[in-house]
Design a protein around this nucleic acid. Sequence first.
DNA 1: TGCCGGTTTCAGCGGGGCCTCAGCTTGCCC
DNA 2: GGGCAAGCTGAGGCCCCGCTGAAACCGGCA
Lengths: 225, 225
Amino acid sequence: MRILVVEDDSRLRELLTEGLEQEGFTIETAADGLSGLALARSGEYAAIVLDVMLPGCSGYQLCSRLREEGDWTPILMLTAKDGEYDEADGLDVGADDYLTKPFSFVVLIARVRALVRRGGLDRPEVLELGDLRLEPAALACARGTDEVTLTAKEFAVLEYLARRAGQVVSKSEIVQSVWDAAYDGGANLVEVYIRSLRRKIDVPYGRRSIRTIRGAGYLLARDGG
Amino acid sequence: MRILVVEDDSRLRELLTEGLEQEGFTIETAADGLSGLALARSGEYAAIVLDVMLPGCSGYQLCSRLREEGDWTPILMLTAKDGEYDEADGLDVGADDYLTKPFSFVVLIARVRALVRRGGLDRPEVLELGDLRLEPAALACARGTDEVTLTAKEFAVLEYLARRAGQVVSKSEIVQSVWDAAYDGGANLVEVYIRSLRRKIDVPYGRRSIRTIRGAGYLLARDGG
DNA sequence: TGCCGGTTTCAGCGGGGCCTCAGCTTGCCC
DNA sequence: GGGCAAGCTGAGGCCCCGCTGAAACCGGCA
């Protein structure tokens, strides 16, 4: 049972390490966001305890990055603020649970145990970008209240764009992720699918949610257009 | 999706009811522990939101009692104290999650949703999707008031679809779950059974509850069509 | 042994969607 | 403004996926 602790405060870090080790877990630690991300990527952990405030790369960023990459290791977020939306933000970003500092150690242990037991639960099953909704499990897509029917490939392309909404995604990235690795048919295919998608989710609604960045790729607006 | 709210503070109770109803849940409430326990025993709920401090019978007692009786309905505990042992106690006693007052509504909704999602997988004795009823123990199936007789394999396929209603299920998943892992006869078998099922539960009723998602698999409508 | 219901296999077919291609438009750089 | 490359577009063919009816297989039972 390996657990990754990402925490910049060295005192707290050692406290966590010690306590969790006493519970029988094996602990690895990182003191900043980037090395935390690197460790999380390289290793298999039963859970990750993650501070929100981190040098290099915030806990939010780290978490959402992992989720984008398809890593659903259970994450327990530690947040110093107690504003009410922070917590929801944490959950939105793909954390499975959160704890507000200062927290009790007993509670932390209980939460970690619970997370490990259920083994990572919450892959968010709907992606929402403004009024654009994607439900990967059902291959369902909706703009506002209208159901939009997409084919399997169309959906795959759109989902990939959605998971990286707000970022420019190159055609070759799309090809590699949606088609067989050994596909060489050329980038036109992507253009064709983009067109088909625009016809279904943009044109009828007067939107321009999929922008093309010449020479770079495509970008799906974070707010769905 | 019925949810039971057990809370003695009438203001909070109404607040919870209202909010959860807006999320599409059907709510029933109890103001004290004993009537809460009675309701929980009598009804089928997707989840229970349970205050710890209750007249008559504390939330802890209610929870552990239910668990003893073999009722594993997901429970979200609300605790007013922030003493450090309360929360851990709640988890130990068999609650699935807890929340410390005062809590944010956004968070509560997220938690309840997560609980409901998970809880559905457990082992409901009867599966109901709209007017489609499945009783795994009896291998019985009904559409509305009509009994529909299914063979063992037909039932197994339908049950698997039903447990994952609203999601796309691939043929190979169905094969792996219904037939021996070492079966290789090809996916056509599934098609044959799907056809047979459609003939029995859809065609006579003019429904289309089992949709085929070309290139992905099949999807049983969450509302039974 | 022969019937019977359930299960599995098989082959034909019809269509949907995946992919290609060629021509056109747009944006960028000299 | 001219020229070039990147991207857009419409149409079309082909292939594979899923559908279907029928027949073979298989075990239980009279």
